[in-house]
Amino acid sequence: MKFQSTCEACKARVNWVKTPNGKYTPINLDGSTHWATCPDAKRFKKK
């Protein structure tokens, strides 16, 4: 299952894809992981 939204930090369009362990991860439209390209990814890191 996947759905599309906009990153709150950089406003890029991302697809949210369900991982094998049941969590969702953001993927750029080109297929790369959004955490690797978002300039503000650390904002969303769990503490």
Rank of each mutant, 00 (worst) to 15 (best):
residue 9 A to P: 00
residue 26 P to H: 00
residue 13 R to K: 13
residue 10 C to F: 06
residue 29 L to M: 15
residue 5 S to Y: 06
residue 28 N to H: 08
residue 25 T to Y: 05
residue 26 P to V: 00
residue 7 C to Y: 10
residue 2 K to A: 15
residue 17 V to A: 00
residue 19 T to Y: 01
residue 6 T to P: 01
residue 15 N to Q: 11
residue 6 T to M: 13
residue 31 G to T: 11
residue 34 H to S: 12
residue 28 N to P: 04
residue 12 A to N: 10
residue 33 T to K: 13
residue 10 C to E: 02
residue 47 K to R: 11
residue 23 K to S: 00
residue 3 F to N: 10
residue 22 G to H: 05
residue 46 K to I: 08
residue 3 F to D: 05
residue 35 W to I: 13
residue 44 F to A: 13
residue 9 A to K: 08
residue 1 M to H: 12
residue 47 K to A: 11
residue 11 K to G: 09
residue 39 P to I: 05
residue 4 Q to P: 00
residue 41 A to G: 02
residue 1 M to V: 14
residue 11 K to Q: 13
residue 23 K to P: 00
residue 7 C to F: 08
residue 35 W to S: 15
residue 47 K to P: 15
residue 37 T to V: 15
residue 17 V to R: 04
residue 28 N to L: 11
residue 35 W to Y: 14
residue 21 N to G: 00
residue 14 V to P: 00
residue 1 M to R: 11
residue 27 I to S: 08
residue 35 W to P: 02
residue 7 C to L: 08
residue 22 G to M: 05
residue 33 T to F: 14
residue 24 Y to F: 07
residue 40 D to S: 10
residue 21 N to H: 00
residue 16 W to L: 15
residue 8 E to W: 03
residue 20 P to V: 10
residue 24 Y to R: 03
residue 47 K to C: 07
residue 5 S to F: 04
residue 40 D to M: 06
residue 39 P to V: 06
residue 24 Y to K: 02
residue 35 W to G: 14
residue 10 C to H: 04
residue 38 C to T: 10
residue 43 R to T: 09
residue 8 E to Q: 06
residue 16 W to F: 15
residue 37 T to E: 09
